[in-house]
């Protein structure tokens, strides 16, 4: 364990270009996935919270259940979709970072949507009469509630980011762990483990953990700052 921490420090200290590329790709892929998943999941989660429609309970159960979607299954589904013999084959997206963004978005969409639904539904309890009185219908209430729930929703997005950046099975299948192209932190860790380089693998793990902690810290700090500034 100590060896791993020492190696991690050494890796960081030497500013290894390959490592920097891997770390950069991990962050770009997972942050993009959070962005696209969030773009869809926040309004969808809020809409499910506010609107009553036939099959709403089924949608809620499905979203909650899909939070546990096995990454390998998601990976296979996207593989079959993007493979040259699949429906989206002509786009040539398999084994590219774009494919990894797609599969990670699929994995974190249910997490962000389900948590958003819970957060917005609690907030709606509190806001419903006030917003109705001010003349905002349910549809108009969605952006209002998303904005007023922003500090809690950031936590939902971070949960999605955590799942995306820590996930290996899905990105391995659709990304292919190609050196310099689709190799991210987790697939690099899996590769080094397979090579028996446990110390290096653990060192990469330490770096991944550190990055995750930094990003969560930044989000928390920004949240506190914003809360003081704009309430």
């Amino acid at each position: 364990m100590l060896d791993a921490f020492a190696s991690a420090l050494a890796l960081i200290a030497t500013v290894d270009a390959e490592l920097a590329g891997i770390v950069g790709l991990s962050l770009r892929v997972s942050l993009s996935a959070v962005f696209f998943a969030g773009l869809l999941a926040l309004p969808v989660g809020a809409a499910v919270a506010l609107f009553h429609f036939p099959g709403r309970s089924a949608v809620i159960v499905l979203l909650n259940a899909l939070m546990g979607l096995p990454p390998v299954v998601a990976g296979l589904m996207i593989y079959l979709l993007l493979s040259r013999v699949g429906p989206l084959g002509p786009l040539g997206l398999l084994f590219t970072p774009t494919a990894m963004v797609i599969v990670q978005s699929l994995l974190i969409f249910p997490i962000v949507a389900a948590l958003t639904r819970q957060i917005i539904s609690d907030l709606w309890e509190e806001y419903r009469e006030q917003l109705t009185s001010l003349g905002a219908g349910r549809l108009r209430a969605i952006p209002t509630l998303l904005w007023d729930g922003r500090y809690s929703l950031v936590t939902a997005l971070l949960a999605g980011f955590g799942r995306a950046v820590a996930e290996v099975g899905a990105v391995l299948i659709v990304g292919g762990n190609i050196a310099g192209v689709t190799r991210v932190m987790t697939t690099a860790i899996a590769l080094e483990t397979n090579k028996g380089n446990l110390t290096l693998a653990l060192a990469l793990g330490v770096i991944l953990m550190t990055l995750t902690i930094i990003i969560n810290g930044l989000a928390y700090g920004l949240g506190q700052f914003a809360r003081r500034r704009i309430g």
Binding site: E126, Y127, E129, Q130, L131, S133, G135, G137, T144, W147, D148, R150, I230, G231
Partner: peptide
């Protein structure tokens, strides 16, 4: 909505929106 537009209500504990 056209009727309620001419009404207003102040609640015992009004909800302050998280903005200025």
């Amino acid at each position: 909505p056209r009727v309620r537009r001419r009404q207003a209500m102040v609640f015992q504990r009004p909800v302050m929106l998280r903005r200025s």
